[in-house]
Amino acid sequence: MSSSPSSGFSRRQLLSGSARLAGGLAVGGGLSACGSSEGKEPTDELAAKLAGLTTRDAVRRPGHFFSVAQFRLLERISDLIIPDTDTPGALAAGVPQVIDRMMVTWALAETQGEWLEGLAAIDTRARREHGMAFVGLEPAVQFDLLSRHDADALSNGDQNYRQIKSTIVEAYYSSEPGATKELRYDPVPGPYQGCVPFEEIGRTWAT
C-alpha cells in the first residue's frame, strides 16, 4: 500500500490545518509520524481525516498494523464495549494490542480490510452525526453513538462490525484478567460434576 494520503490534499496542507483543530488528542512521542515534513505530530483527528480510516496510510507505527489514529479508535471501541468496572476491562487486558498483533501475524489483506472498513464506519457515523472524529467526542456521546451503531450493525448482519465486536469480546475473555478476574477459570477442574448450583460457581466459566 502507498503511504501517501489518499485524498487530493497534500500531507503538508492537512498538517498545517491540524493546528486549528481543537480538542484533538496528541499522539505520544516516539511513535513514527512518517512523512511528517514539518516535524510535528499530527492529531488523531487529522490522521483519521488523512486516510479516511479506510487505509492504513495515516500514521504508521513500525511493527504495527493500525495507524496511530486507527489504534486510538480501536482502543476507544474496546474500552466502550468492555470497560473497567469492579474488574479490569479491555484496555487493562491489552485487547487492542492483541488485535493489532493479530492483524500483523494472523490476518490476510481481506480481513485487514474488513477491520479498517468496520472501524471507519464508526468514525464516519461520528462525522455525520457530530461533524468530528469519533475519538474527539465526549465519552458519553461516544457511548451513545456506539450503542446505536452496535444495535444497528448486529440487526443488519454487518459482518465487519460483528467481527470487530466478537474479537474484542474473545480477546478480553481469553486474557488473564478477563478469564480469572472477571470470570471463573479453572485449568484443572478435576472430575466433572454435572449438576452444581450456579451460586456455588458464581460466574460464567471462562473455558
Partner: peptide
C-alpha cells in the same frame, strides 16, 4: 451459553460485561 454469545448480542459496556458474568 458462555461469553461467546457476547460477540453477537446487542449491547455494550458495563451492562454487557455484567450480563456475560452469568452463563
Amino acid at each position: 451459553g458462555d461469553w461467546r454469545r457476547g460477540g453477537g448480542q446487542i449491547g455494550i459496556g458495563a451492562e454487557l460485561k455484567q450480563d456475560l458474568r452469568t452463563p
